[in-house]
Design a protein around this nucleic acid. Structure first.
Lengths: 190, 190
DNA sequence: AGGCCGCTAGGACGAATGTCCTACGAATCT
DNA sequence: AGATTCGTAGGACATTCGTCCTAGCGGCCT
């Protein structure tokens, strides 16, 4: 039951290809080949390329929400939960070093393309932003929770960018350590 | 004397368009229209699109070197010079909020495209990296100068990414202030 | 069995792409 | 003045792009 439909397969393949190759550089032929369907069959499920992008963004939003809920359930205290966020840099290190952060690079590309869905894509950032801010609030930093969230978001974005430019695994680990230390100092310095 | 040749105009236009639209999404027709030359005339100056990209990267490398030399001459102490670096986020704020960091976004795109010139583009980062490391060395932090350089580079990259995603001017100013404070603490904590 | 409908394949379409070719204008040189 | 060279224009080219159209398959209903 609940089998994956062709539509799901298309979204899934597009999700990966948009991440690995970028949206503009991924063609229908690329997706069709990956899903093993004919190019024409696409337009039964989506009426244009932008619609696939929207579906991909929706999928990522959904998966991100699930992930954040899971972190919230697994982590016993806010500091540990924030560490879960920081450690995606380690967990997805190989992909990040090859393609950068899926959230950051998509936003960057859509901003350049002046694409209508850029606002939707930035909602991915907002998800992390508000989640992190909530954790910082629980940490006793209600007054500057959003600033701290943005700060941490920015640092992880920068690490992803440089990791992909320099392919430096050790740099990632070091920055992750620093960020974890910083979170601890946030909790202590109330 | 020293007038700009057509070749220079092409490189200049490509430089701007690659920044504003991305490399993959910028066509010869786009560049030709901006320079007001015919599309076919291109191949007298460059034999393919990749060659224009290389010329653009060379131009950016050259301009970056000049800028770093200038910062070195203007700044009286290393801390002030590092502040010059940090303040490009303010000086180029409008463009960064619209298109991101020209260095970071080009590297990200070329990484995704698996482009041969990605290594050349990452040299742009290296220029800032070694220059910053030298300033941190002069600041008395020889032992971890490169780590500090990478850390600051990453933070400014992250700020650029989020600035373009959220279009938040105040966030940029705040992070710039934090980075300047951080540099000061680097100098003091010898 | 016959008819309907969800889904698919495959090709046609015009527009746009990167690349190449050839002819022309203007300057320079002999 | 004639010849040569540098730079340019404009179109031809094969390919690929996103999009659309139509015919056919298979399962479901009556």
């Amino acid at each position: 039951m609940n089998e994956l439909t062709t539509r799901d397969h298309i979204i899934d393949a597009a999700d990966q290809l948009f991440y690995m190759q970028g949206y503009a550089h991924t063609s229908f032929a690329d997706i069709a080949e990956k899903v093993k369907i004919s190019r024409g069959n696409f337009y039964y499920h989506f009426k244009c390329k932008d619609e696939i992008l929207d579906a991909v963004i929706d999928l990522r939003l959904e998966n991100t929400r699930k992930m954040l809920v899971q972190w919230e359930q697994e982590g016993n205290d806010p500091e540990e939960r924030i560490r879960s966020f920081i450690h995606i840099l380690i967990a997805n290190q190989a992909k990040i070093m090859a393609y950068g952060c899926p959230v950051g690079t998509l936003n960057t590309e859509l901003a350049k393309l002046n694409h209508a869905s850029h606002a939707d894509a930035s909602e991915l950032f907002s998800l992390f932003r508000t989640w992190l801010a909530r954790q910082f609030t629980l940490l006793g930093r209600e007054a500057d929770a959003d600033d701290l969230a943005m700060h941490l978001l920015a640092r992880s974005q920068g690490v992803a960018t440089l990791a992909s430019a320099f392919h430096d695994e050790q740099f990632v680990r070091q920055e992750v350590r620093h960020m974890c230390d910083w979170v601890k100092s946030c909790a202590e310095g109330i």
